[in-house]
Amino acid sequence: MALDNDTVRNIARLARLDVPDNQLEKYSGELSSILDLVAQMEAVDTEGVEPMTHPFDATLRMRADEVSEQNNRENFQAVAPNTENGLYLVPKVID
């Protein structure tokens, strides 16, 4: 299936990626060829087949409600692009 430029733009927006106009054709071609590969799935009748999310069909483990993590804020924030007083700084969102 061929994706049109508007669809590629929309996917890029959802993924928070910028695809410049002069690369839209390239991306739509490449993404379409991947979707062509994937399209073989459509022909398979999967009525009644249970989706497999985990090889052992395991569900999430519960753990005891006790402290397991120490406070590592300074350590973790040392690798952040911009922090102040223990907070992550980002561009202003609300005026």
Partner: peptide, 11 residues
């Protein structure tokens, strides 16, 4: 897509 792919994964 995703749900169908997971069913194929089962097969």
């Amino acid at each position: 897509y995703y749900a169908q792919a997971q069913k194929l994964r089962r097969l």
